[in-house]
Amino acid sequence: MLKIGIITGSTRDSRVNKQVAEWVKGIADKRTDAQFELVDIKDYNLPRYNESVPAVFTKDYQTPEAKPWSEKIDSLDGFVFVLAEYNKGITSGLKDAIDYLYQEWNNKAAGIVSYGSTLGVSAANELRLILSVPKVATVGTHVGMSLFTDFEEMSKFNPAPFHEDTVGKLLDEVIDWSTALKTLRVKEEVLV
């Protein structure tokens, strides 16, 4: 069965990001076509990215925190990133978490759930570009939520009901694409 990680995109103490990620997981857990896991980047305590270039390609990490992060991402077949938009971009914590790895991301699919004053659209577009380098295919359906209408006082998550249908479509695509890309990863393992 496919394993899909729902990855938080913020490490701030005052974040609302985890509320959104837990909501996505609650919707995902109603499905039977994949296993879903909340992957909180804050739990991995990754320091600012400072690895050598060869480590990214050889998985010979000098940073001790990178090894459990590597193992977690390697064990997953696809992802749903939950993004908070900061200054029209993704958070530095998420960028560092992505940069620590390369092979572990390869030939996997991802969906994006974002929020911000303008639905997190700029951050979602930035993440699509970033994920293209380690060969993560991002699906077309995007869930964008507003700090003004989907949160109470910008701190308590209270999504509009119609978002649940869009999350369902996003999960359909992530599962379909993850299934297809898994065959490519299996083929590559056989060739090695």
Score class of each variant (00 low, 15 high):
2 L>Y: 02
8 T>W: 11
8 T>K: 04
10 S>H: 02
11 T>E: 11
14 S>T: 13
14 S>I: 06
14 S>G: 03
15 R>Q: 12
16 V>E: 12
16 V>M: 08
16 V>A: 14
20 V>I: 15
23 W>I: 00
23 W>C: 00
23 W>K: 01
25 K>V: 14
25 K>Y: 07
30 K>M: 10
31 R>E: 08
32 T>L: 13
33 D>Q: 13
37 E>N: 05
37 E>W: 03
38 L>S: 04
39 V>A: 10
40 D>T: 12
43 D>N: 13
44 Y>G: 13
46 L>N: 07
46 L>S: 05
48 R>Y: 06
50 N>P: 03
50 N>D: 14
50 N>C: 10
53 V>I: 14
56 V>Q: 15
58 T>P: 01
58 T>E: 15
59 K>N: 14
60 D>T: 05
61 Y>C: 07
61 Y>S: 05
62 Q>R: 11
62 Q>G: 11
64 P>F: 10
64 P>Q: 07
66 A>R: 06
67 K>Q: 15
68 P>R: 03
69 W>E: 02
71 E>D: 15
73 I>N: 02
74 D>K: 06
75 S>D: 11
77 D>P: 15
77 D>G: 14
79 F>S: 06
84 A>P: 01
84 A>T: 14
86 Y>D: 01
88 K>A: 09
89 G>A: 13
91 T>H: 03
91 T>S: 14
92 S>Y: 00
93 G>S: 07
96 D>Y: 03
97 A>N: 12
98 I>Y: 03
98 I>T: 05
99 D>V: 08
101 L>I: 05
103 Q>V: 07
103 Q>M: 10
104 E>W: 01
104 E>A: 11
105 W>K: 01
106 N>S: 14
110 A>N: 11
110 A>R: 09
112 I>W: 03
113 V>T: 04
118 T>Q: 07
118 T>E: 11
119 L>P: 00
122 S>V: 05
123 A>I: 08
123 A>K: 08
129 L>A: 09
131 L>V: 12
132 S>L: 09
133 V>D: 03
133 V>T: 08
133 V>N: 02
136 V>Y: 02
139 V>K: 08
140 G>P: 00
141 T>C: 03
141 T>N: 12
141 T>G: 05
144 G>Y: 07
144 G>H: 11
148 F>L: 04
148 F>T: 10
150 D>R: 12
151 F>V: 02
151 F>R: 06
154 M>I: 01
156 K>A: 11
156 K>P: 04
157 F>N: 08
160 A>S: 13
162 F>I: 00
163 H>E: 08
164 E>D: 07
164 E>I: 08
166 T>A: 11
167 V>T: 09
168 G>W: 00
171 L>A: 08
172 D>Y: 08
173 E>W: 14
174 V>M: 10
175 I>H: 12
176 D>P: 00
176 D>H: 04
178 S>D: 10
178 S>R: 12
181 L>P: 03
183 T>V: 02
185 R>I: 00
188 E>T: 04
190 V>A: 04
190 V>F: 05
